[in-house]
């Protein structure tokens, strides 16, 4: 256990000493802050506009006033969903792509393996270390966002909102850890860290953009068809083809959960957390399973001699 903690701490330390990694983290935090700022400003403008309309109606002597716009506080933070699913995954890849191949090239992997620690402990240590870095990162973003949210929008999130936000960050953590574990596995298997890195980038591109894009094009296609005939039949926004394609993309699943949790979809904005999670249970499992699978593969691969 001691060894694992030592390994994990070292991971954290080296990660935060790496300039390039720091740049990416900076980018990540900066973007999320910007997005919250913009989101909050928009909400402010929206409220302002509502007040103006009220004022106008009152001056005209109208008695029935429109109800205030349904503002779900968390939707201010909704841009985070796309940032985490995009840059969050890249951060996880950057964090993990040299975890084994780098140490192998340094010769330090041999040094560690010749110490009284088991190989699986090395994997666990690295996983823990990566988890700590990702946790710290998400924590920073959470705090930044909450602070900015309160500061700019002037709203205070209630218990319900905080719980939703926390569960969103928990799922974001799982999502990023999935990428980290996959990258670690690739790093165990390949000697060439550049190759491993590019491989993961391709995988990331595929599941984050190419597959959702394919699904999207199927969807708009179905829509375009109806628009042409000028018959607005109520098409469910998900065609079978697009649903199928999205099944292969944890990124799309993550975004779906995120949208529900951060009150971006009015229908699910007021239902309880448990209900949301229950509704998205399939998606959660889909995010969880690939990560666990590659983690197990990593444990297996690390036992092999060629690993050193």
């Amino acid at each position: 256990m001691n060894g694992i903690m030592t390994l994990a701490r070292k991971e954290v330390k080296t990660a935060f000493r790496d300039n390039i990694f720091l740049i990416i983290i900076g980018l990540f935090v900066l973007l999320s802050v910007i997005s919250v700022y913009i989101g909050s400003s928009t909400k402010n403008a929206e409220l302002q506009a509502y007040q103006d309309i009220l004022h106008l109606l009152k001056s005209q002597g109208a008695t029935s006033l429109p109800s205030p716009p349904a503002i779900y506080p968390l939707s201010v933070l909704s841009n985070i969903v796309s940032y985490v699913s995009m840059i969050g995954a890249v951060v996880a890849i950057f964090l993990g792509f040299e975890s084994f191949s780098g140490e192998r090239n340094n010769g330090t992997l041999k040094l560690i393996a010749a110490r009284p620690v088991y190989r699986d402990q090395i994997v666990t240590g690295k996983l823990l270390g990566g988890g700590m870095v990702i946790g710290v990162l998400l924590g920073i973003i959470l705090i930044f966002n909450l602070a900015l949210f309160v500061l700019v929008s002037g709203m205070t999130p209630g218990i319900n909102e905080i719980i939703r936000l926390l569960s969103f960050f928990l799922i974001a953590f799982i999502y990023m850890m999935g990428f980290y574990a996959a990258t670690m596995y690739v790093s165990i298997k390949t000697n060439d860290s550049a190759f491993g890195f590019m491989l993961m980038m391709i995988i990331w591109l595929t599941i984050s953009f190419v597959l959702p894009q394919l699904a999207e094009s199927q969807r708009t296609f179905a829509y375009a068809l109806n628009a042409t005939a000028q018959t607005v039949t109520q098409v469910s926004s998900d065609t079978v083809a697009s649903k199928m394609t999205e099944l292969f993309s944890p990124a799309a699943q993550f975004q779906n959960i995120g949208k529900d949790l951060l009150q971006m979809i009015p229908e699910t904005s007021n239902i309880g957390l448990g209900e949301v999670l229950l509704k998205q249970i399939g998606a959660i499992i889909e995010i969880l399973i690939p990560g666990l699978a590659v983690l197990l593969l990593s444990y297996k691969a690390a036992q092999k001699e060629e690993v050193l």
Partner: peptide, 22 residues
């Protein structure tokens, strides 16, 4: 040809390996 952890100092490298050895 060991290069150790380039981003860590000598002491940090040693502390890491020392702790691993208990």
């Amino acid at each position: 040809n060991v290069t150790l952890y380039g981003d860590l100092t000598a002491v940090e490298n040693l502390r890491f390996f020392g702790k691993l050895s208990g």
